[in-house]
Design a protein around this nucleic acid. Structure first.
Lengths: 217, 217
DNA sequence: AGACTATCGTGGTCTGACCACTTTTTTAGC
DNA sequence: GCTAAAAAAGTGGTCAGACCACGATAGTCT
């Protein structure tokens, strides 16, 4: 039964799909070698040789990662690790699975929950200086709802939640343009409430005045 | 049989890659032909022929979409549209966005915020039957903290937040020691509070009795 | 030294050939 | 006629090799 020719890459997974193994292998390489955005990774032919797989299998893995926005390929130059800040995959996925209204609902709800969490963190741990800087910025600059909550998410010192917000937010933007305009004064009031460290007031303004939620939400 | 979507690729943009055109083309085909999850799409060889491209290019596009969780391939059978509810965006991004960051201390906090959000959703929208089922399960079966909150996350109707919890939780488990043991009675009290629809009581039990948070958190 | 050119390395694509597996069709036996 | 075994066809999985287009480099000519 066993074939002695199964030398392949240390295929511990019974995934039976080479390209998935290569994806995992690449992820490991990036992590182990500490590769950073901008760094060049091995060429397709070299990977093919080192992993004992066909070049087409390597390409399938690379193309998948490229579509995800995790790597970038430049003809004649090579393949590079990308800073996955502006993944184009958002529009892609959006175009595919956004007809589904249930997902839309989940997206909206999740975004709002994350935003409330960010507000709770900010109200508890942001410094007065940071908040007053935000206040001045809001008073002197133009901004929309998206930009405002981006600032909130950045103010939050939990970088993980900030990233989750960014992801959820980008998918929200890709799926619908529904951000009703809210008076800038309302956002100012929100910042005031943050400065007062009044969590309940902050959340009330967010839910009722900015997101127009029903009482239950 | 000619389909409305049977149009050849017009690769007018020389810089664009064939496989990206094919991804776009597939998206159109799915939309125009009204294909739903579970439906079978054309075989790789047929797509290759209809679009006048090599089969390897078709495969690069399909493999990318497969990694995104948008399609599913079964050897010997064909390629099928997958239920978009099961998109893997969170898993995929999660697997990568945690790699280089030193955000372990954010993990616990994020996990707790997500769990609190789940509890809020459950307390507001879970049915009495669901909660009593959970109560019976908790009274009759062994469980640990991890399993308990997995149940909570599943009870939550928002599948996106459930997925986020799973990711954060799996990374938490990989990074930290097991949770301190908490008396099962405490979890029962939590379920009771859920049944009473007392959100504040639920969160208090969670924060103080289960997570031993300081008042500020 | 500067500009030009040949070469090499890279990704991009196509083709054809197998393999493994599933489905369909054909055939053999009753 | 029916059923079950066998053969064929269809499909994804993989590989090897061949080009092409492009970028970088080294070497050459002026």
């Amino acid at each position: 039964m066993e074939k002695a020719s199964d030398v392949r890459l240390n295929n511990s997974n019974p995934s039976s799909k080479i390209y998935l193994d290569i994806v995992e292998k690449l992820r490991n390489m990036i992590e182990v070698d500490g590769l950073l955005p901008g760094d060049k990774i091995s060429s397709e032919r070299e990977l093919s040789e080192r992993l004992n797989v066909g070049r087409s299998s390597v390409r399938e893995a690379l193309r998948a990662l490229e579509l995800l926005g995790l790597i970038e390929t430049r003809r004649g130059e090579g393949t590079f690790i990308k800073d996955f800040q502006e993944h184009r995959l958002v529009e892609l996925l959006g175009a595919f699975f956004l007809q589904n209204s249930k997902i839309k609902e989940d997206l909206i709800e999740t975004k709002q929950f994350i935003e409330k969490d960010c507000l709770r963190i900010v109200v508890q741990s942001a410094s007065n200086d940071e908040l007053e800087l935000l206040l001045h910025w809001a008073q002197k600059n133009w901004f929309d709802d998206d930009l405002f909550f981006q600032k909130i998410a950045e103010l939050n010192r939990n970088k993980l939640i900030e990233r989750i917000w960014r992801i959820v937010n980008s998918y929200s933007k890709a799926s619908f343009r529904a951000d009703q305009t809210v008076d800038h004064k309302t956002y100012i009031r929100l910042i005031d409430a943050l400065l007062e460290r009044d969590e309940q007031k902050v959340l009330d303004i967010y839910c009722q005045d900015i997101r127009n939620m029903s009482k239950k939400d």
